[in-house]
Amino acid sequence: MRIAIIGFGAVGQGLARVLADTGFTVTAVADSRSACINKDGLDLPEVLARKEESGLCGSAGIGIADILSSGAFDILVEVSPTNAETGEPALSTIRSALAMGKHVVTSNKGPIACAYHELKALADINGVMLGYEATVAGAVPIVSGLRHGLAGNTVRSLHGILNGTCNYILTRMRDEGLTYPQALQEARDLGYAEADPTYDVKGIDAAIKLVILANTLLGMDIRLSDVDITGIDSITLEALSLAESEGATIRLIGEILPERNQVRVSPRVIPLDHPLVVDGTLNAISVCCDLAGPVTFIGKGAGPYPTASAILADLNFIRDSYDRGA
């Protein structure tokens, strides 16, 4: 099947490297300032080299609108950065592609958190799929795990470590006795935290992921403003010591209690032997189901290849479902 990649940062480039041996043909690539289209398939090593040298993946004269109007793709892969407030411009791009009868796979949390129900309805009307496994917890197959693996269960509660940056900071504060500013600086130096870490350390990133899980898998209809959010930026070392004295530690936990309609992100005191206590930048999600009981997923929550893994899973699912015998 033919793929158009919108967004050519770390995730888009990681995906382009992975797709080389998969049988998918990439016919179009766009970054924020340029694009390239070849109906017969692009030479991906050449596109990657050009991006590295010039910062542009293609020609500055063309853009996403040209890719959409060319129609030269079966699946649109949207991997541009998240806009949590409006989901734009990715939301409009995804809407257009679905309306054209094209499948969409995205790692972009904005459109899914802001408009999942609308986009899903649009995909259904047009008989195409909307894949978003990569939006939550990177490589961890939580979306297909809940939708398929645990199908038929009622989820009583969901708790998760959904932000690797916060988990790294809290792990280092506990293990090395670093203060919050020291641990944050270390996370920045290692590239785990952005220059402006607000989005991560204030719990907003984790909250957006909860909105996606709640709306797409747990039958809820909430917005980011419905989530009760507390970040980790005022956690003291003394708090970690007090927790440690009871055999516990502190982690930023996202929580969904569907029956109480309660969704919140907050630092919590958690026993050290709890399955959600994972180290470093790992992500973990525990669901408690009526039939299955507790089930915990753990894995890499970010990075080009873990994210590409989730995107590739969606792409393969679409190919298996829609491209039989082609």
Binding site: T230, I235, A239, A243, A248, S266, P267, R268, V269, I270
Partner: peptide
């Protein structure tokens, strides 16, 4: 005041 509740 920030309150940290236990999980569980």
């Amino acid at each position: 005041i920030l309150i940290l509740e236990p999980l569980g």
